[in-house]
Each structure stands twice: as C-alpha cells, then as structure tokens.
Simulated assay, not measured.
Amino acid sequence: MEALLVRKLGDPTLPPNASEKSSLDLSTSHPIPNLESPTSVRVRIKATSLNFANYLQVLGKYQEKPPLPFIPGSDYSGVVEAVGPNVTKFKIGDLVCSFVALGSFAQFIVADESDLFQVPDGCDLVAAGALPVAYGTSHVALVHRAQLRPKQVLLVLGAAGGVGLSAVQIGKVCGATVIAVARGNEKVQFLKSLGVDHAVDLSSANVIESVKGFLKSRKLKGVDVLYDPVGGKLTKDSLKLLNWGAQILVIGFASGEVPVVPANIALVKNWTIHGLYWGSYKIHQPNVLGDSLKELLAWLSKGLITVNISHTFSLTEAHLAFTALKDRRAIGKVMITFDGGKIVKSKL
C-alpha cells in the first residue's frame, strides 16, 4: 500500500524522497496492516486531515515525539474492508471515521471497533474525515469545558483556520455572539458568510479598537470566552477585552510564541484558564471524546455545521499540503485523499 513515512525529523514541505534533506519518504509497497484482534476492523482510508499538530510532529516540535520511522496523520474516514470474527458494530462496506495518534497517512489502517464511528447517511465522507480533531477540539473546549451558553460573547482567534472555523460554527450552534479574528479580506468575507456577528481583519484593523467598538454598539460589557489557538501578541491584546469571570481556552500557539497570562489580573478578574490538549482525553476521559464526536456527526448530518475543505491533495503531494498549512493559505481544512476521493473497494 501507499504510505507516507517520517524517516527523520525536519521540514515536511520538502518533496518526499527528493534529497537527503527530505524528512518524508513515500512508500508504495508498505505492508497492509493485519487485523490485530477479534474485534479489529481494517479501513480503506478515503480522506485524512492535516492538522497543525501533524506539522509540528514532523518538525519534532510537538509535545509527543514518536520513535522513527512513523506514519503521521490523525483523523480519517473510509470504508470498512475487513472485520475480525467478534466484530458486531460494523460490516464490510460501512462508512466510518475515527482518529489515531499516528498512522492515517496511508491507504489502510486497523482500529478496534470501539474506536470507530459510523458516518450517518447523507454526510460527505471527506468532511467526516476532517471532523474529529478540529471540530472535536472546539466541541470539547466550548461545550464540555467552557459550557458556552446562549448570548455569551465568544472571541475566536485564528478564526479562518481548521480549529478556528470549527469554533465559530459551534459557537453559533450554542447561540453565542461570535467575534471572529483573521488576517486578510478573503478570510474575513468567508467568516461573514458563516454569520459571525463581527469579524476583525488584522491586516487593516486593530483588534482592541474594533472589538470594543462592536461591543459598545451592542451594549455588551466584554468577552466571556476567549478561544485561542494563536498565542503571542494577539493573546496579550485580547486579554484587554475580557469580562470579569471570563474563560480562556488555550488551544495552541500557531504564532510560535507562548503567551503569558498575568496571574494577578486573572485573580482580580476571576478568570478561568483552561488548557485543552484534546488528544489526552483519549487516555483520561475517552467517553467525553466519544460523546462529543457522536454529537458532531449528528450536527453534520443535520446541516448545523459544515466543513469547509480549503485544499485537497494526494499522498504524493503531501509536501504541498504541509506548505499550504505552513503558509496560512487555507480557509478551513487541508485534506489528503486517496483514489481521487472516490470510494473504491480493495483487491485484497
């Protein structure tokens, strides 16, 4: 099978197998994984999502560093190809999605049936492959941790990225007043098309002045929940917009700079700071992840949320996918698809 391997840590935007500097190795004869237990399911992957964590993982800058070589990739969707003798939830031909710590940048993957989710009728399978990590992160953060309520004010930084767009949509489903921050007119116009209450273009506006003007026009006191996958100066500026009793969701540091939240101000303002490492819920509270993804799939099937696929690449073009992510060109999700995104039965 085709599989993308990380042979050494380094820049994933270099073409695979191109030179000694390439960190990626595209294999066309990697062994197809066998069923590991009576409840194992083998899935032929249709689509797998590229997340910022995957980029950091190849660079060697992620908090978890797997031994080399490894196949990167986390959330995916596909078609059940084979089932173990004790599998009861799925049959060959079922459409499923899931997530793993590693391994989805390949044509096939094996998972236990307990880790797979049925994709509801009417859901686009590529969209389902983009759902778990980005939308799961925002759903657990906003619904489970912050318990976002109707009419609260939600400020989303990096709002045009994968997790940012998911936070915007989930915020609207929850009935919040959503303020979205992004850079560039194209991204801002897209956010407005999603129905955000206010959008800030960082290329032409000051976030503090713009948001304060909007809050004043709506007679609102401040921001109740800050969703922050960016960090850096933008976080520092956004703290000036928070209400007493506000909640800060620390999602990541796409800016490359870890922000400092003054503890004395957090004390006086009664702020709550939530660190949100979504993947660790798989170890500590897997039921939360399961319930979250089931609700998201239900929302997707009902049209309450949509997944915007910004770029789609083949596995041989994986370095271009990493480049699109690195250069912040994507509005929404960057995907890698197999067989042109078509559902194809294997010839095993």
Rank of each mutant, 00 (worst) to 15 (best):
D121W: 07
A82W: 06
K233N: 11
A130C: 10
K345F: 06
S346E: 01
E81K: 08
K151D: 14
E36H: 13
R218T: 11
I273N: 14
A298L: 15
Q147M: 14
G222H: 00
D124C: 03
T272C: 13
A130D: 07
L220G: 03
A266Q: 10
I331R: 04
T235C: 15
D112L: 03
Q189H: 12
P66Y: 02
I109Y: 01
L102T: 04
I251T: 03
W244N: 05
A82T: 07
V43S: 08
A141T: 06
S301P: 14
L142K: 15
G213D: 08
A330H: 04
H198D: 01
A53N: 03
L215P: 01
H319C: 08
M1V: 15
A167S: 13
I71C: 03
S74V: 15
G60R: 12
D121R: 10
A127H: 12
A82P: 12
S74E: 12
D94R: 11
G340S: 01
S310Y: 12
L155D: 06
P38G: 11
Q169R: 09
V225S: 10
K333N: 09
V178K: 01
F313T: 06
K240P: 01
K302W: 14
T177M: 07
A160D: 12
N287G: 08
N287Y: 08
S346P: 00
D94A: 09
S77T: 11
D291R: 15
L202A: 05
L249T: 00
I305Y: 07
G78C: 14
F70S: 10
I71G: 07
A47H: 06
Q189F: 11
T316N: 12
S292W: 14
T88Y: 01
S346Y: 03
D121T: 10
V156P: 03
G341A: 02
A82H: 07
A205K: 08
L26I: 06
A159P: 12
K219N: 13
A159G: 10
V225G: 11
A167W: 09
G10F: 04
I45P: 10
V261S: 04
A160W: 14
G78V: 14
Q57D: 03
K91N: 10
R183A: 13
P132W: 07
V156N: 02
F253N: 10
K46H: 06
L148R: 08
S301Y: 13
I273Q: 12
L194Q: 02
T337Q: 08
A82G: 08
H139P: 03
E295V: 13
R328P: 05
S204E: 05
V260W: 06
S193L: 13
K61V: 10
L241K: 05
S22T: 02
A82L: 06
D228I: 09
V334A: 05
H139D: 12
L50C: 11
A159Q: 06
L304P: 13
V260M: 10
V178M: 03
L125K: 04
D11I: 11
S314K: 00
S23D: 04
Q189N: 11
V258I: 15
L241F: 08
V261E: 07
